[in-house]
Write a protein that binds this DNA or RNA. Structure first.
Length: 347
DNA sequence: AATGCGGGGTG
DNA sequence: CACCCAGCATT
């Protein structure tokens, strides 16, 4: 059974959260700024990505592209290069598009209105809310996985977070708990509590500033929340590549922007049948993605002349690169690993 | 409303 | 092995 909560009770929880954050909040590079460009970059990078995983990427990215103008002027390939290994590569493509969007539609000045920010490519309701609140003080909750977890537990709310309506539902809950004029801090505090204390598994409830108020904790039902019914089932996919090499140079080509690994580089998939005679070894790599179990067979082919590669490259749109040049391109993780293995003797 | 999209961490 | 992470675009 659910008890009716007064607005004052929600606010009480929100204030406790802010008090905790002022002492225990994480010291992160993007916490020191309210530059919407930097907050935007950080929010995109950390979509579906843990802080520890993306922190170096964020620092490198900001160092290379310190402002909007620099990013907009950059080559697409270089933006992709700085995204290498982060995954969800459409984020990098949309990021670059949005940079151009701001240059042309907003004369290079980052828009301040939630509705305008929301129209940027790759920016959804969460990111628009985060930028609006952190940079421009708008009172809008940035509802993410942390919000779902914390709020569903504190209020023992079994609303299914995999439903489309969950965002608006928990936005309303969060809004009631959000003190005036501290929206940005509140949003950051919720993220920190969610990742440091109110973790998915083994939450540290004994150290939680909200444990007196947390219904799920006091009912001993922490593990029942949040309720999430959606189940993602990976499918199997077999890929075949040929690593075609001659004296340290090899063939690569950029992928399309559909399917997986958008705009990343890869080895040839089909090669002339005659080249089968040049296969020196074959390696099978198993690689797990969230939605796919990949089985990748890589034939290592050493052709007999550079001309063989040149003809093939001309006819099929491949480029011939050496290891150094390949470092300037972004490859899918399993191919990156293959290259690292192939060239590790060098150096 | 449902699906696809990476890579890495955790239990 | 399953589940999750500072979500979004597309259909």
């Amino acid at each position: 059974m659910k008890t009716k909560k007064q607005n004052a009770d929600f606010l009480h929880v929100g204030r406790k959260l802010l008090d905790w954050y002022k002492i225990h909040g994480r010291d992160l590079p993007f916490r020191k700024t309210s530059d919407p460009y930097k907050i935007w970059i950080c929010e995109i990078i950390f979509q579906q990505t843990r802080i520890e995983q993306g922190l170096n990427h964020y620092n490198n990215f900001i160092q290379r592209f310190p402002d909007l103008k620099t990013l907009a002027a950059a080559e697409n390939d270089e933006v992709l290069l700085y995204w290498k290994g982060l995954g969800y590569y459409s984020r990098a493509l949309n990021l670059h598009k949005a940079a151009h969007q701001i240059m042309t539609e907003y004369k290079g000045v980052f828009p301040q209105e939630y509705d305008d920010i929301l129209r940027l490519k790759g920016v959804g309701k969460y990111t628009a809310a985060a930028i609006s609140s952190i940079c421009f003080g708008k009172k809008i909750p940035a509802v993410d996985g942390n919000f779902y977890r914390v709020l569903s537990r504190v209020f023992a709310d079994d609303f299914d977070v995999s439903k489309s309506k969950a965002f608006d539902y928990f936005s309303d809950l969060a809004l009631k708990a959000m003190p005036e004029n501290e929206a940005g801090t509140f949003n950051e505090a919720m993220m920190d509590l969610g990742s440091e204390i109110c973790k998915p598994k083994n939450p540290l409830c004994e150290n939680c500033p909200l444990n007196e108020d947390c219904l799920a904790f006091n009912l001993g039902k922490i593990q029942d929340f949040p309720v999430k019914t959606k189940k993602t089932k990976p499918t199997d996919l077999a890929l075949q590549y040929s690593f075609v090499e001659f004296e340290g140079e090899f063939l690569i080509k950029q992928r399309g922007d559909d399917f997986i690994w958008k705009k990343l580089y890869e080895f040839p998939i089909e090669v002339p049948k005659e080249w089968n005679a040049f296969i020196t070894r074959q390696k099978t790599v198993l690689h797990k993605l969230t939605h796919k179990n990949l089985s990748i067979v890589i034939n290592h082919i050493v052709v007999e002349s550079r001309e063989m590669m040149e003809i093939f490259a001309d006819e099929n749109g491949f480029m011939i690169v050496n290891e150094e040049e390949a470092h300037q391109k972004s490859f899918p993780k399993p191919l990156e690993n293959y290259l690292a293995d192939r060239f590790k003797s060098k150096l």
